[in-house]
């Protein structure tokens, strides 16, 4: 079954730049997909449209049964509760501890203390940070901070995890750690993962589904792929 379906999606920004041209795409439930392409290829725009940070100019986007393009501003939270998002810059709250940062995502949707505690500890264990529960973000390394962000993204058991260049700020070794964590989440929880990246090494070593974008056009969609060099 498809979790995400895009039909004739076009995105034109107000300044006249077209980021995505007529994109058709279907992504299966439980899959792990890389979205690759150089800068300006539209991969970030695609991710942003999936969590309704940007609205498509034309076309239809269905995520987990929700018509994202038609979602009103006041109802966006319904989509956001179905998915987790991880960014390059972590986006943690500096004044909260690791535990509080992860629990924040459950608190704001009104979960009880007991459920919050159980889910937060489970998520932190999955990313391997159970021993840093009471630390503050600035006491952690970049890789650890990103793992906190991943824990926050999965704590509500979302069907979909969107990652926008999660390894962009990390060295290759830390990047591989993050990839192991993501792969593990994909396998044990069955969470569908879509990850935008331009890191060749990662894409080649993971051997996952690859969507290649170039200048806003879909140029390749491989079930088990490697990074296609733009020059080829």
């Amino acid at each position: 079954m498809d979790l995400i379906r895009l039909k004739n999606v076009e995105k034109k920004y107000k300044n006249g730049v077209t980021a995505i041209y007529d994109l058709n795409l279907a992504i299966e439930k439980g899959s792990f997909t890389f979205v690759i392409g150089g800068s300006g290829s539209g991969k970030s725009t695609l991710i942003k449209m999936l969590y309704r940070e940007e609205k498509p100019t034309r076309g239809q986007i269905i995520v987990g049964g929700l018509d994202v393009a038609k979602l009103r501003n006041t109802k966006v939270y319904k989509l956001r509760r179905k998915l987790g998002i991880v960014f390059q810059d972590y986006r943690l709250l500096p004044k909260l501890t690791v535990y509080e940062n992860v629990a924040f995502a459950m608190e704001v949707i009104g979960a009880t203390k007991e459920v919050t505690r159980k889910n937060v500890l489970r998520a932190l264990e999955e990313v391997g940070l159970k021993n840093k529960v009471h630390n503050y973000p600035d006491q952690l390394s970049g890789g650890e901070q990103q793992r906190v962000a991943i824990a926050r993204a999965i704590v509500n058991n979302p069907k979909l995890l969107l990652c926008d260049e999660p390894t962009g700020n990390l060295d290759p070794e830390r990047s591989m750690e993050i990839m192991k964590v993501l792969d593990n989440i994909n396998k044990t929880r069955g969470t569908t993962i879509i990850m935008a990246t331009h890191d060749k090494e990662i894409v080649n070593s993971m051997q996952k589904q690859v969507v290649t974008l170039k200048d806003g056009h879909l140029v390749n969609f491989k079930k088990k792929g490697t990074y296609i060099d733009e020059n080829n």
């Binding site: 006041t74 939270y77 956001r80 509760r81 998002i85 986006r91 709250l93 704001v108 949707i109």
Partner: peptide, 17 residues
């Protein structure tokens, strides 16, 4: 602002914010 942005991302409704 940062906190509000994160609240939006993790699915807090406008009412909650």
């Amino acid at each position: 602002r940062r906190e509000i942005g994160i609240m939006r991302l993790v699915g807090a409704s406008n009412f909650t914010i």
